[in-house]
Design a protein around this nucleic acid. Structure first.
Length: 290
DNA sequence: CCGGGAGGCGTTTTGCAGTC
DNA sequence: GACTGCAAAACGCCTCCCGG
């Protein structure tokens, strides 16, 4: 693995910048040399200043540093959501095997998360229904014990909650959500944070609609609408917003209008090339219409 | 003007023995 | 097992000097 300095040197020379041009007033000349040779590391504060001169953010730098790959954890998150969204059991099972070999706490929690997802999907493939009873209680315990100990939540922890909240019982979920909400506010200004929060709200709203907590669902739905507001990359959540409004209308006895709204959201998902998401929403709609 | 080496200096971390 | 004290090692950064 290259050092940070070696990667920076590569980027610098590709831009045709001299060491002076890059490092002036940030670190000394000779320290810059040692840094580029990999003999010294520098603090994050200095690295950030250097990256700023290279017109690069810290996340992009780490992406390049890993050879244009995402970090280890992103790989988990990516693999997990990719496999989950595409209904790819084989990929999920591979992930499961990988985690099984590790012993640290976080891997145990992820293991419970993946195993639950596998069980849920296997059952869905057989019956066409999502049934929480197929999840192991020990897995739910592993996850809730972990989340219960959190004073403040990171985005990855919010994602964990999102991925598993539908198996956690209502009271427990409510307690967790109350501690989560404090951390949630802090991430409203954070681009990826907003994304993570939108996904979480989407799942929460779904659960609330299914247990007929319609007014709570409406409150969260308004939150979803506000937080996902102006950016076009949030279009997906706009579609979801429309879809849930449809479901709520059905629940409030405007069956025809609601179905029309929900169906148009599903059509939009097909049009944007999200067939698995669309199918999931379709299956939920038909469950509700029964 | 550039990259590179030697060495200095203050701060932080680490290893380890001793104490509570 | 947790805390304390302390020396050695490592780290982060610098200045000064050198050769191409």
């Amino acid at each position: 693995m290259n050092t940070y300095g070696e990667v920076i040197r590569n980027i610098r020379t590709n831009k045709g910048l001299s060491q002076k041009e890059l490092y002036l007033d940030i670190i000394s000349k000779s320290y810059a040399i040692e840094f580029e040779k990999g003999n010294h590391e520098i603090t994050l504060r200095l690295l950030e200043q250097i990256l700023d001169r290279l017109m690069m953010g810290i996340d992009e730098f780490f992406y390049i540093y890993r050879g244009y790959k995402l970090s280890k954890h992103d790989t988990f998150t990516n693999k997990y959501s990719k496999a989950g969204n595409n209904n790819d059991l084989e990929a999920l099972f591979e992930l499961y095997q990988e985690l099984h070999q590790r012993e640290d706490l976080i891997s145990q929690v992820h293991l419970a998360e993946v195993r639950s997802r596998i069980r849920l999907m296997k059952h869905f493939n057989l019956t066409g229904k999502f049934e929480n009873s197929v999840i192991l209680t020990e897995d739910i315990e592993t996850i809730t014990n972990y989340l219960n100990n959190l004073q403040s939540w990171t985005l990855q922890e919010i994602q964990l909650f999102t991925n598993t909240l539908n198996y956690i019982d209502y009271d427990q979920r409510d307690i967790l959500f109350k501690t989560l909400i404090k951390s949630m506010k802090k991430y409203e200004a954070h681009e990826r944070g907003r994304d993570v929060i939108c996904v979480m709200l989407t799942n929460m709203i779904y659960e609330l609609i299914m247990i007929n907590q319609i007014s709570s669902a409406e409150i969260l739905l308004e939150n979803l609408n506000n937080i996902s507001s102006p950016q076009y990359q949030m279009l997906f959540f706009k579609i979801v917003y429309k879809y849930y409004n449809g479901l709520i209308k059905i629940k409030r006895n405007s069956k025809e209008e609601g179905t029309k709204l929900a169906q148009s959201a599903i059509d939009a998902l097909y049009e944007f090339g999200e067939p698995y998401q669309a199918k999931t929403l379709e299956s939920i709609l038909s469950q509700i219409l029964q």
